[in-house]
Structure formats: C-alpha cells, structure tokens
Design a protein around this nucleic acid. Structure first.
Lengths: 223, 223, 223, 223
DNA sequence: GATGAATGAGCCTTCATTCAT
DNA sequence: CATGAATGAAGGCTCATTCAT
C-alpha cells in the first residue's frame, strides 16, 4: 500500500519541513548570506552558554566577529535572533527526515527513525539542543507564532504518525495517540535534557536504541 | 515483609523530605515567619508570571505588599529567593508522600501514588509548577547545590523505588531502572508542561489515571 | 469700578497661576523636595546650553550632583523633565503677576506690568528663557497637554486683558484683540530671542521701556 | 529721486539675493542637479515633520527615493543638508523681492511688499516655513555662518528700509529702527508661528492685510 | 524591623557616517 | 555615480542592591 501524498502525516511533515519565511532581512549578496549563517551559529553558541535572557548582544557580536550594530542589519531584536535558531534547525530536521523516510516500509520504522534522528540531531548540535530544550521549549514567552508553530509541529508529526500506524494495525488501537505521543516525546526529551544538564548517559547514541525499542514495544500492537 | 528503615528508597525519601537548611535568615518571631511565607507566595506568583530572569524585585515587593528593601531582610538575592521556592515545595511533596506511602502494600501502588501526587501537587499549585517545570528544572543556571539536590531527589526516589520493585519481582527486571525512570519522569513532566503551556489536557486529573496506568503497565513484571 | 472676581481675564489668570499637578513623583521628605528643586535647576542649565534633544541625561546628573538613575526617581523620562521646567516657571510668573496686579488702577498699567514682568523674568532667568523661547515654544513636539496649556495661557491672558481694556474704553476698539495680542507677544518675544541669541540689546531692561511704550501707544484708544 | 544702486538697503538686499556659495558639491551634470533639488525638497518635508534633531537620514533618503549613502554625495553631513534649505529659499525670497520692488515708488509700499511676500512665501511653503521659523531661527545651534547670515539678512533688510524710509520722511523719525524692526519681524513671525502650530488664523492671507496695515500705521510718519 | 531613597553597573538599540564594489 | 553593507560611538533607561534613618 503506497503512501499517498494526502496522508495526513505526510502533509503535516511536508509543511513543517518548509523553511518558513525567515524573520530577518534577506540580503541578496552571497557574502551577506554567509555572514548571516555565521551570525546564527555564533548566536546559538552564546545563547546556549549564557541563556537568552542573560546573553549580551555584545558577546554574540564578538563571537560572530562582527559589530554589534551589524546584527541589527539582519535581525530586528535579540529575541527575533534567538527565535530564528530553533525555527531554522527544526525545519532542517523535518526536511532531513522527510528525505529519508520514504523508503521505509512500516510506520514503526518511520517513527523509530524520527525519534532516532531527533536524538542524533541534538547530539550533533548540543548548543542548539540546549537552546531548544532548555530555553525555548519551556519558555513561557513564546508568543512568537512562528516559533510556537515549529515546536508544535514536532508533536503534530508524532501524533499523525501514531494515527496512521494505528490505522494500519501496526500500533495498539487502545492507546490515545495524544497519550502515546506524550510518552514518546516526554521520554526522548527527558533523556536529552538529562544528557545536556548532567552528561548522562555518557554515550547518548548507545542509550537511544534501548530507549526507542522500549517505547516502540509499548505502543506496538500485540502480535 | 515489612519495610525496613534501611531500605534505600525509604532512606532517600526520608532525607529528601527533610526541609533542607533554609537559605534566608530564620527569624524566631512569629510575625516575621508569616511575612516570609507571604513573600514566598508572592514571589512564586510573580516569577511564574514573568519568568525569573525578567521578573523585577519591585513587582515581587508590590505583590507581597512590602518594601523592596525588606525582601533583602529575608533573602540575600533575587536568585536565592527564587530557588527557595522549589526547595520548600518539593520537600513538602516528599514529606506528604512519606506520610501516605507506608500503608500501601506494593511498590507498584507506592510508585503510582508518587506519580499521582506529583501531578496533583502541580495541578493544585500551577504557579509553583510553572516555576519548577518551566524555569527551574531546565535551568542551565542551577549551580546552587541545594536546588539541584531537591530536583535530583525526584529522580533518585523513582530510581530507588524501581529498584526495590524489581527486587521484589513487581517490576520487569530487564529494564534498566534509569531508562524506566526517564520514561516515567519524562512522560509525567511532559504532560504537565503541555498542560501548563497549552491548557491541555483540560482535565488533568482525568488524564492522569490512564497515563499512570499505561506507564505502570510498561514496567510491570509480566504476570 | 472694582474688579470682579468673575472678570474673565482674572479668572484665566487665576487658573494659569495654579501650580498644575507636578508631572514627577512627589516625595514627602523635605530633603527630597530640595533635591528635586536642584535637579530642575540643573536640568534648566544643561537643556538651555545644549538643547533638549542633544542634552544628555548624564550631563544633567553631573550638573545636579546626583546619579543618572536618581533622576528617574523624580521624572519618568527626559522629556517629562524638560517639560516640567516651563510649566513651573510660567506658573510662578503668572502667580507673581497676580500678586502685583491688584493695586494697579487701569488695564493699561496692568498690561504694561505683565509685559515688563515677562521681560524681567526672562532677563533674570536667561537659561529658563532660552529653554522656553528657543526650545519649547517653537517645538513641534509639544503634544504634552500640560506644557501646551501653560504656554497657551500666556496668549489667553493677554487677549483677555485686551478685551477688558477695550470694554473699559482704554484700548482701541477697532483692533482685533488677537491681532493686537500677536503684535504684543511677537514683539516682546522677538526682542527676547534677539537678546538671547545675539546679546542685543545689551541692556535689555533699558530697551524694554521704549518697546512697551510704543506697543501701548499702538493699542491705546486715541485721546 | 531715483534709487541709487548705492542705497544701503538696496546693496544689502542685492547681496542677500545672491545665492551664497552652495555647501555641497556642484555637479555640472543636469541630472545630478535635478536629483539634488529633489533631495532638498524631500529633506525639507522630513525635517519639517520630525524636526532636524530627530529626523533620520534614512527617512530623508526614503522620501527622496535614493540610497542613504547617496545623500553624502551631495552634502557632507546632516546639518549641512538641513542648513542648505533656509539658505536657498531665503535667497529666493530676497531675489523675488528684488525683482518686484523696483517699480514701487515709496518705501512704505516696498516694506509692505516685503512683509506680504514673506507671509505668502511661508504660506506657499509650509514645510519650509516650519523648518525656518520653528527649527532654524530659534536654533541655538546656528554656528554655521552662512545660515546665520541668511537669517540675519532678513533683519538687516528691514532695518535698512526703515532707515531709508525715515530719511525720506515716510516713517516716524522718533522710532529707533531696531525697535521698529523688532516689532515688524516679531509680529509677522509670531503670526506665522501661530498659524503653523495652531492653524490659526485659518485664512492666513486674509489676516495678513490688517496686520500689515496696523504695523505700517504704527511706523508711518504722522501726516 | 522596616523602608524610602539613592546608585552603579550594564545593556539594548539607534543612527550618522564610511567605503568597497 | 550609486549603493548595499558595515560600524563606532553614544545614550536613554532599567534594576538589583545598599544604607541611613
């Protein structure tokens, strides 16, 4: 049974993978775009290290090797700069998943891939992960619609995949998909947070397999 | 088989339930203690509303109905004030659990109680919960040992109970207790965060039963 | 014919002489009130010297011998501070005039006194005069109602006196009081501005007599 | 008695009507000159609207439809740009007056024309008038000699005309020409400022006649 | 014990101006 | 010529904390 492009989970994923309209200015010049990328990377490092509220634009500028005022050529405010980071990176994650998901035959494999990629993405970009999981996600302040949507997409994708898996009989039908999604996301997120804050488990990659196996076992339709 | 006071999980719980040394001064005066309680309650509200970093001592003072400088008669700094909140409340939670846990015969029931009480405590004190789950817990800033210990106690208690449950044959022995604890804590925490940020599930109490059931089902030793 | 308290010009003058509600905070302490006075005096000097837009709060603070942030204990912004100056001083001028005007028998004498006191007040407080005549008065920015009202009172008082003088037969009835008022105010103001900007006439007091005489001659009812 | 070119008032007027050396570069290109004119017009509008100190070069550029940095191809600084405006326009006013004044037989008529043209010029160019009467004229900042001279020319021309009129017996000889000039200029200026700030008199043209008549009556030599 | 008052350190943001292309 | 891009220099304002009364 081939996937239809109209499968809800694919549609949601496809939209989430779209690089939403960039918040800052969009310079035409090649060199400028490069500077902007470097700025975002530098900001990620500084914000992850000091926290958004306590981080200083001066430190971001220094880290990026540009003038403080130049930051404002790209982003209108400190918050706009901070919010751009999770938006872009999450879109990348969703896009990468979209690219690799097609060949997999079952929703089970696909969901497993999604969770695994999420952990790997965090492990490969710990600064970004700190920012997302410790600053942005729990932030009471997310009034910015674009950030909120990016973050919410995560849950939406999982719920949609769970639904599709249930429909196909791969996943238990007796579990509310929101409940399952909460367990999946909460477990993965908590593992990441523990790793970020305490450095445990030391080998995050090694711990991911058993974690994902256990979670998949929980939701797998029996027999 | 009666509990021994030397059971690791009871020992850990007993220590966690001790009100750790208060950070501020400890005036003997009755009236002073009352003011201090009010101050802490006011601070909880303000910090939950604005976030610790953005909250102003002036707002806390106004909410408490006292002068800004008077706050410093009780707590040496804004952070000390902020940190005192989770410390006290978590100790209360642990103590309340300690009081009710004894009569329960199985670790399964006890763990179930712990998770349920955690959710109830958050539901009954949403301001405090915002502060703990959205501000303190993910905080990169927790260098303050006492806060960190209070928070860590949560995980320690669960791991110890899981171990004891495994030892008694109630819980699956093939699951690493840290992995199980991560799932339990992550799931509960994520449910609370979603409730705090999005107001869903609307009826948190009603959602807690199925969630705990599912989680317990996951770790229960088969037959 | 004794003045009635209900004479329009007296009523307007009486209101204008009221010290309008102070814009800044109103500390109870005696010492604080003194500081506030000194602050206003220092601000007058700095604003007159550098212009409001270019003046720095740091310079005002230095001139007043207090910390920059302390200024904000008294006034909420630079503009509020700047605007308070003309408001207070104009009210003083109006009040002083109100005190001295009663004994004078004719409107002619009274108007002459008003114009003379205006010039004297400026001569005695050249910093304040610079601020009022060169910064505030021509300011497009006066959206602050209180400042605008204080300044407008000046014209209102003159027009009302002209009307009363006409009614009494002292002033020519064929002149529109607004036209006359424009000539009176414009002439006096222009003389002051020239004095402030160019230092001419060198002896402002000596030049005032002839100026006022000429103006009064213009509006005096013939014979 | 024909005017002699050596009449002081004519000599002063002639010099004032010369377009003083332009502050910016003087590109020979036709197109460039056009751009410069448009830039000056745009700057007039922006400066009149926001005030020189608060106006931003970026806004001027946007209004002129050119790049910010291009402004600097024409004028070396914001102040140079701002000052160029009154200089050029005043020179135009003086030149226009010079053109029309010759046929008039009496100094009285000539002075009347000068005052009327001044008002008309302001009414026809309210943006420029705001700039001149509310920003430049009272400016403490006019250290720029050329601006100051342009503005001062106004008074010089009037004083010279008053002197010539007195010499000819048209104007009262007992009035100090500086005093008379102050009344004339102050009255006209004040009428204009009131119009600019308050929109009154609504019909400026209609109000000008009586005002000028009254002023001329004041200085006219008695029969 | 309680507070009104004062402050120093700091930070985000603005903007006129420069310059390589 | 024209400009996009970059920046240095500032400045208004905030706020946690201190202290004399």
């Amino acid at each position: 049974m081939p996937d239809s492009i109209t499968d809800p989970w694919l549609e949601i994923l496809g939209q989430a993978a779209q690089p939403h309209q960039d918040g800052g200015s969009d310079p035409k010049q090649q060199r400028s775009r490069q500077r902007k990328r470097e700025l975002l990377a530098a900001a990620t490092r500084v914000f992850a290290r000091d926290g958004i509220a306590k981080a200083k634009m001066a430190d971001v500028a220094k880290e990026a090797g540009i003038a403080v005022s130049s930051i404002y050529d790209y982003y209108p405010s400190k918050e706009a700069l901070a919010y751009e980071i999770p938006i872009q990176r999450l879109a990348h994650l969703y896009a990468a998943f979209l690219e690799q998901v097609a060949p997999l035959p079952t929703m089970r494999d696909r969901l497993r891939l999604f969770l695994t990629m999420t952990v790997d993405h965090a492990r490969d970009n710990p600064d970004w992960a700190r920012l997302l999981y410790l600053e942005i996600w729990p932030s009471v302040l997310i009034e910015e619609a674009r950030v909120r949507r990016s973050v919410d997409d995560f849950g939406r994708i999982i719920v949609a995949m769970l639904r599709e898996g249930s429909r196909r009989g791969e996943f238990r039908a007796d579990l509310d998909p929101h409940l399952s999604a909460t367990i999946l996301m909460g477990s993965i997120t908590h593992m990441l947070i523990t790793w970020l804050l305490y450095g445990r488990p030391q080998d995050l990659a090694a711990a991911t397999g058993p974690m994902v196996d256990t979670l998949m076992g929980l939701i797998a339709s029996p027999r």
